[in-house]
């Protein structure tokens, strides 16, 4: 087995393990404090973990907004979530205004969803198909600098899921900021 094949196999195994123990619900709060339960049955769902202070994440604000706009119109449930325990609600509200996010953002209190999905960096995206199975885990694309993008990883994954096709690259990694988790004793 060559390196690439082995890596893909590992990725599929880890995603498979995650899917097999997929919980019924991902619980997120909106900025008013109201709890919401996802995924919505029958809908492809994308969870994007972001940060208000991570410079890499902030470089993706416009890309996140564009993705949200375009894929919401295609019927995808796009959830932009903040799991950082060091980013208070008022800071998230201000960032939402400053970044001109025209969609609700969610707070992953106690980073339960990040823990469940094994998210560790911002920005980081997950694609769940209509059965709640994780089909992609990784960055939005393969370059911070828009001019150097070679692969639109998140878009390609969602397009494949919507078309009922296998995701060519189900897992990828990129440099990012750590998700600042709540301390658990």
């Amino acid at each position: 087995m060559n390196t690439l094949t082995r890596r893909n196999a590992c990725a599929l195994l880890s995603l498979g393990a995650l899917a097999a123990s997929q919980p019924a619900a991902l619980n997120l709060s909106d900025l008013s404090g109201k709890r919401h339960t996802f995924p919505v049955a029958g809908k492809t769902t994308v969870v994007v973990f972001y940060s208000t202070i991570c410079p890499i994440s902030n470089e993706y604000n416009e890309r996140i907004a564009r993705f949200h706009r375009e894929y919401s119109l295609k019927g995808v449930q796009v959830l932009v979530a903040n799991a950082n325990q060091n980013e208070p609600k008022d800071q998230i509200e201000k960032h939402t205004r400053d970044a001109e996010f025209e969609f609700p953002v969610f707070i992953d209190s106690a980073n339960a969803v990040a823990d469940r999905l094994k998210a560790s960096v911002t920005p980081e995206a997950f694609v769940l198909d209509s059965k709640g199975v994780v089909r992609y885990h990784g960055p939005i694309d393969d370059a911070r600098n828009i001019a150097r993008i070679k692969a639109h990883l998140l878009r390609d994954a969602v397009d494949a899921v919507l078309a009922g096709k296998p995701v060519a690259r189900p897992e990828a990694k990129a440099f990012g900021c750590t998700i600042k988790r709540v301390r658990k004793t």
């Binding site: 560790s120 960096v121 990694k173 440099f175 990012g176 900021c177 750590t178």
Partner: peptide, 8 residues
């Protein structure tokens, strides 16, 4: 490091 997510 295969276990590394890329977080800094």
């Amino acid at each position: 490091e295969p276990k590394w997510s890329g977080a800094l």
